[in-house]
Amino acid sequence: MRELIKMFLAFARIGAFTFGGGYAMLPMLQREVVERYGWTTESELMDYFAVGQCTPGVIAVNVATFIGYKRRGIPGAIFATLGVITPSIIIITVIAALISGFIGNEYVAHALAGIRAVVCALILNAVIKFWKSGVKDWIGILIFAAALALSVLTPVSPIIIVVGAALIGAALTLARGRGNGGAENG
């Protein structure tokens, strides 16, 4: 039970300080669930983002469910997911109920402009960490470059990119298996 509560609170912190959707959540996730609690690894986090992108629902919630389930089964999944959505429910309800001028408020706009610049730096940091544990060889570099070009220059859906990369991985595994069939046994 203690770890479930810890999990709820960790994900509530992540939910309360993520500005700008799922990807912006990555620096907070790395800090809380990888570095601080060791509930998952950098590589697994990447896999969760990839699968979370292709399954229905909000990516941040999907990643929370993944980590919670991995750690503590279904109760873990529930506590992590409730943790990540609770701050939103409270903050949005308060804003919707009480603060009618939130959107036009100049202080909110200034604060958000500052937060966005910081979020860019945090994402850059997160990308460097992912690069270190996820891009291992020239195939990885090529896939990174192609995926980056596709996401920045074309409106291709992220799902297509993930599925495309998966197919390349499957083809390479098959090719390798055929090339040195006996190698894996030894």
Partner: peptide, 24 residues
Amino acid sequence: FVDGVFYTIRPAVTAMIAAAGWTV
């Protein structure tokens, strides 16, 4: 097989996050 698939997915995910950072 699953290992091989995630091996190539990881660089793609890294790139997609870099792209999201670029957008901001």
